Simulated scan of single mutants.
Amino acid sequence: MVENERAELVVLQHEFDWLLTEEVPRTFNQVMQILKDCCTHFPVPLCGHDAAAKQEKYIMSTPSHTTQDQVKCVVTVNGDTISQADMSLKIAKHANQIHRTSVTPEAPWRIQQIQDAANFIQLAIKFLDGHGANNTFKTSGEVLSVLTHLTSLLQKGRSSLLIPRKKTIDELMNSRNMLVLAVYHLSNAAGTVKFDSIQAECAVPWLNPVLVSFTTALHIAHQLRDKVSVFSQYKDFTPDSCSVSTVSC
């Protein structure tokens, strides 16, 4: 019985050593390549890619099923900067009145979400470059520590694009570095001031491959975390301290 348990521990140790020396570096290299490929889809130069910032034009409008009020906007985007935009607002209650405003090349607006996502992906690549495949791992704790920090950066980068931080009206009014196409219509009814928000939207083609890259990298990192963690489920096997020499006969 004891011999069988020792033999099982030896097998587990060999599998764990293979995981640390082969699977962990391979996985970190795979994630690194995914992130570098992701950088090529961003509209701004990242990670050594010297391509000029892409100029794109978008036509934004209010979905017809959401409100009778209408917001329309034609936006020219250079990389992570809105260089020009023409916006118009038409309120259903005041059909004959159209409100207009614009962004001019002399006063461009930065899109904070793109900046944040780009910063997080560059931080993830830099972190992997110093702590990933080129590192020598001896314990599961070391691997899990790297994975915890890596997945945190990837989740923040992905969330920057999927769930932009909401701002109060005061923050929007005081903002100088970002454009939020949210129109607030104030009205006074029986002495009570209320406001309605109206939003315009459009599809951004490059977002899809970027989000797929973030999601794929996260999935692979989580798979590696599960593989490393599974060894701790064995009662007599402690991957942070066990070695072949201590379990072999």
Rank of each mutant, 00 (worst) to 15 (best):
A117N: 03
I98L: 10
Q115F: 00
P108W: 06
L144P: 02
N134D: 14
Q115H: 00
F120G: 00
H149P: 02
G130E: 10
H149R: 09
V103E: 06
L144H: 03
Q113H: 08
F137E: 05
T151D: 11
L153W: 12
I125Y: 11
T136N: 12
I121V: 14
F120D: 05
K156H: 13
I98E: 13
L123P: 04
A95W: 08
H131N: 15
L154E: 11
I114Y: 10
K126H: 13
S140Q: 07
S102V: 04
G132A: 08
F120E: 11
G130D: 13
F137P: 04
I121S: 03
L123S: 01
G130L: 11
T139C: 05
H149E: 12
I111E: 12
E106V: 06
I125Q: 10
N119M: 09
Q112C: 01
S152G: 08
I121W: 02
F137N: 09
Q112G: 03
I114T: 05
G132Y: 11
I98D: 09
A118R: 02
L153C: 14
I114P: 07
K156M: 08
L147H: 05
V143I: 01
G130W: 01
T151Y: 03
L128H: 04
T151Q: 14
S140I: 04
N119D: 10
T148N: 12
N134H: 11
T139H: 04
A124Y: 04
D129A: 15
N134F: 08
N134P: 07
K138D: 04
K126V: 03
Q122V: 04
G141K: 01
V103K: 05
N135L: 09
R110W: 07
T136V: 15
H99R: 15
W109A: 05
G130C: 09
L153P: 13
A124I: 07
G132Q: 12
K126Q: 11
T101C: 14
Q112A: 06
L144F: 07
L144M: 09
N134Q: 14
G130S: 15
T148H: 13
R110T: 06
Q112K: 14
A117M: 03
F120Y: 13
K138L: 14
V103R: 07
L123W: 01
L128E: 01
T139K: 06
P105Y: 00
I121F: 06
T139L: 01
V103F: 06
H99Y: 15
